[in-house]
């Protein structure tokens, strides 16, 4: 089970790289749905993307962090 937390980089104008949802790849503006798995932090843009990660991404690509 995850929780909402500030992880996005929306207001940091010195930083040009964005943070992406671990499932869909969408940029996360500010608030991320943060889930800990095996000691690793996964960031999602919404709780439904955690479901997509478990049901679609993990069976297909493995339990890896494909991008941040």
């Amino acid at each position: 089970m995850g929780e909402w937390a500030d992880r996005g980089l929306a207001s940091d104008y010195f930083q040009q790289q964005n943070v992406h949802c671990s499932a869909c790849g969408k940029m996360i503006p500010r608030r991320a749905w943060v889930v800990m798995r095996d000691g690793k932090e996964l960031l999602f843009c919404e709780p439904d993307c955690e479901r997509i990660y478990d049901e679609y991404c993990v069976p297909r690509y493995g339990a890896t962090i494909r991008w941040r």
Binding site: Q16, I52, R66
Partner: peptide, 16 residues
């Protein structure tokens, strides 16, 4: 409708 678009590809461009 869910979309998976890997960052850094032609379908999810990254700066700059």
């Amino acid at each position: 409708i869910k979309i998976i678009a890997p960052p850094g590809t032609m379908v999810n461009v990254q700066h700059p």
